[in-house]
């Protein structure tokens, strides 16, 4: 009975892998320039258009494991200094190695609020709208003046925190289909498809490219 109750209580957590991380960086770009860039939702998918090469076989050979193919503004409302946006994001796993069905592409809707006075951006996954592979996602971006941790020539400091809940069942589906198509040894497949380490590194890489773009 206790086991059954435990299963019922913990069942929502059995199917989710939680990741969280932060990204802090000094930048030689002005706060306003960075804010304008971070608020251009439609161009997010161009940031990692070359894909994210996480899995490196050798120095020269690496696999492109994910790229963002859609960042579409569904609706946007501007009120005073705050812009509220519903944004649709779609990622494509293993773009050059597999031909996965489009239904297996991780996708989700975000509700983003960008404040042009406070120079902040926050986004949260909208659970009421269709989503696949991710059950939750939260992003906070804060821009401030450079501090003692930055170099003298830097103009701004970027602080990003993010959290995501990966839906393990969806992820397993992507993993099984990809492994089947690629016909790789199990040891490589397991490394390649480690959801936690993969998504943590994917988002860090994305933010790195984001501020550089």
């Amino acid at each position: 009975m206790n086991l059954l109750l435990s299963l019922i209580f913990f069942s929502p957590f059995l199917f989710a892998t939680n990741i969280q991380g932060s990204y802090n960086k000094c930048s030689d770009q002005s706060q306003q320039a960075l804010f304008d860039k971070f608020s251009k939702f439609e161009s997010y998918h161009e940031i990692d258009k070359d894909g994210f090469k996480y899995f490196k076989l050798t120095k020269k050979i690496s696999l492109n494991v994910m790229d963002m193919i859609d960042s579409k503004v569904i609706k946007e409302i501007k009120k005073d200094s705050v812009t509220t946006t519903i944004l649709y994001i779609r990622l494509r796993p293993l773009p050059n190695q597999t031909t996965l069905a489009a239904k297996m592409y991780p996708r989700f809707h975000l509700l983003c609020k960008s404040n042009m006075k406070a120079l902040t951006l926050s986004c949260n996954l909208v659970k009421k709208l269709p989503h696949y592979a991710l059950d939750d996602f939260n992003l906070e971006v804060k821009l401030s003046e450079n501090d003692s941790t930055c170099k003298k020539r830097d103009l701004s400091k970027i602080e990003i925190t993010y959290k995501a809940d990966i839906n393990d069942q969806d992820y397993e589906e992507i993993k099984a289909e990809s492994a089947d198509q690629m016909n790789f040894p199990q040891v490589i497949v397991d490394r390649l498809f480690n959801a936690r380490s993969f998504f943590e590194k994917y988002w860090k890489n994305f933010f790195e490219e984001w501020q550089k773009s």
Partner: peptide
């Protein structure tokens, strides 16, 4: 075609979008 099918399956209700924006504090 597959993309179109998914888009059709996951077609968003405009009222739902408005509700979500309203809930978030926007009119």
């Amino acid at each position: 075609t597959e993309d179109e099918e998914i888009e059709a399956d996951e077609e968003l209700n405009p009222d739902l979008i408005d509700d979500i924006l309203e809930e978030s504090g926007e009119t």
